[in-house]
């Protein structure tokens, strides 16, 4: 990328990658999942990475969150290079600086919404009381304070994903990484989750969302298109009015 992306003066990007490579297999079976990806996300920015399935988006997100290690290249988070960190350091980084939202929600089935949200706080060594208070606040923020005692199995997909978003926020991460957050949701639930993410963006939360769902563009400041393991296009979406929308109505004669 050739330009700084509107990061605040004096502060570098929260997240930056340099010539990121990911290869699986070898010989004839070599798969280049990522091929020299360069990505930056400034503080408070919402970046959407779009591409068809198999384009390497999920691999990219796993590398950004330290869930996998790149074959080559660098990942920098808040000024620290993370691709060479030990598993232990990565674990600390994940619980302090990163919040994950997955397509499959990945909530613990036997824990209530409240307990699911508390979990990362407990893993980070917060006191049970702090964890409980924080989880209650976040559930209220995602509009599920009345569902705090419910098990995931008793919740709709949209509600589960909102719980997952609350869980991602419980340790006040520097960045939230979302992998197809609307992938398993219907239109109404997608809208709920997008509204929630939009609220986070408005509150200054840095977001990186990989998706093949174009609706996510609604909340993104920047849209990056991926194809075959490379970033091929970047679009800055200035937030405008719906002026041109009228053309979409088809009402013109």
């Amino acid at each position: 990328m050739t330009q700084a992306n509107g990061s605040l003066p004096g502060i570098g990007p929260v997240l930056r990658t340099q010539d990121l490579q990911m290869r699986y297999g070898r010989g004839a079976g070599l798969v280049r999942a990522l091929n020299g990806v360069e990505l930056e996300a400034a503080a408070g920015e919402a970046v959407a990475v779009m591409g068809p399935s198999g384009s390497g988006k999920s691999t990219l997100l796993n590398l950004l969150g330290g869930l996998e290690r790149p074959s080559a290249g660098e990942v920098w988070l808040a000024g620290n290079r993370i691709d060479g960190m030990s598993e232990k350091e990565l674990a600390r980084l994940r619980r302090q600086s990163i919040g994950f939202v997955f397509q499959a929600f990945h909530l613990m089935d036997e824990l209530t919404a409240q307990e699911n949200v508390e979990l990362p706080a407990l893993l980070a060594g917060r006191s049970p009381r702090t964890a409980r208070r924080r989880a209650a606040q976040l559930l209220e923020r995602v509009g599920l304070d009345d569902r705090a005692g419910h098990l995931p199995s008793a919740m709709s997909g949209g509600e589960r994903q909102r719980v997952a978003v609350a869980r991602a926020l419980v340790n006040e991460p520097l960045i939230v990484l979302a992998d197809e957050p609307t992938g398993n949701l219907d239109s109404a639930a997608t809208a709920d989750v997008l509204r929630l993410l939009d609220g986070l963006r408005a509150a200054g939360q840095t977001l990186v969302i990989v998706t093949h769902d174009a609706r996510v563009t609604a909340i993104a400041d920047r849209l990056i298109t991926m194809r075959d393991g490379s970033l091929v296009e970047e679009t800055r979406l200035t937030r405008g009015t719906v002026g041109r929308l009228a053309e979409l109505t088809g009402l013109e004669g």
């Binding site: 050739t2 970047e234 679009t235 979406l237 200035t238 937030r239 405008g240 002026g243 009402l251 013109e252």
Partner: peptide, 25 residues
């Protein structure tokens, strides 16, 4: 770099068109 094309599109840039003939209206 790497052939990434950067575009900036201002959605609000366009004035609302006027004078639609609403056939179905």
């Amino acid at each position: 770099m790497c052939g990434v094309e950067v575009r900036a599109v201002d959605v609000s840039g366009k004035e609302p068109s006027s004078g639609y003939r609403l056939r179905v209206v």
